[in-house]
Design a protein around this nucleic acid. Structure first.
Lengths: 168, 168
DNA sequence: CAAATCGCTCATTTTTTATTGAACTCACTG
DNA sequence: CAGTGAGTTCAATAAAAAATGAGCGATTTG
């Protein structure tokens, strides 16, 4: 991946130095955040592209397989990091990056993190119930910790997601 | 891992239900954040423990290997998620969880994320320099995007890290 | 309607990551 | 100073994750 490089405009199957470096940055970042490299490559390329790109571009310019491109784009779309654009007279679906940090962080927290604190199964409430049954020397701390975990869930919202963004 | 369960106080080699559930929650969370399960298990157990624990406890109660416990604890300590406690009359090192969300997030951002935006190699400045050489139709967007990436680095600080925490 | 295009799915393969445990160091202890 | 316990390191192994691509179905085109 990220093998072909040229120095001028991006002909088919090539990446210019700015694209290479940008993609590389996203790939590195993705490691820290536990995201697959192929997804980072896709987002990186879109992030630096002046115009929307069809799937084909990812296959050719990033040397991705059809599967990776398809799944990666879907994942990014679900995450709200990418949106589709319809191009007149072209059957293919074009993609463009949604390049707003706040938006990205919000959605990441909402979709990947919050569920564990507010899962429909209400795991935290179950833990709290169990905690009350513990022997005295463990109970107090356990109850306090569970309360703390609940507050973490709440804090995610308060912290990063201004009211105008809460639409779901 | 997380195999032995009992319902009373935690004898050697066992985990009570609250511990199991808490650990499980952290293990799940760790997936979303790209952290190894063994690290999550260690942190989860410490998080819910009323008193500091020595390495031995992780070997026995979580069934971890010496290597995992040692490396995991070190990793958590480097991250500032765990601190050591000295226990009178015991040669072993005891650990306790640092359970402050802000602290954890700060350190994670500072250590795992920020470096890519402010690396000593100044990757972003190199990208910016390259961007200026691009043909007109790509240059403007590229320059804007690089500026945006720089602002992301800055935003990390402004966002989550009140001045009183910046001590390094 | 046959042929071509686009893109998805998912079983398999490849690659990466995490875990293990034997061998070691260091510091105490009797 | 031999023996023991705590803890680390790191090469080997096991486990998990990511990537691949053949095989589909759906849609368009001539």
């Amino acid at each position: 991946m990220i093998s072909k490089v040229d120095t001028g405009r991006n002909g088919t199957g090539t990446l210019n130095p700015v694209e290479v470096e940008t993609i590389h940055l996203f790939v590195q970042l993705s490691r820290a955040l536990g995201q697959p490299p192929s997804v980072a490559e896709i987002y990186g390329l879109l992030f630096i592209s002046p115009q929307p790109l069809p799937q084909e571009d990812f296959l050719q310019r990033l040397n991705l397989s059809k599967g990776s491109a398809s799944q990666g784009l879907r994942y990014l779309q679900d995450l709200g990091a990418v949106r589709t654009v319809y191009q007149a007279g072209d059957r293919r679906v074009y993609y463009e990056a949604v390049a707003e940090l706040r938006n990205l962080v919000n959605r990441f927290l909402r979709q990947q993190v919050l569920p564990y604190f507010e899962g429909s199964g209400d795991r935290l409430n179950r833990i709290a119930a169990e905690a009350k049954k513990l022997p005295a020397d463990q109970r107090d701390l356990a109850i306090a910790r569970v309360k703390m975990l609940k507050s973490w869930g709440t804090r995610c919202w308060v912290w990063c997601i201004p009211a105008r963004f809460i639409t779901c």
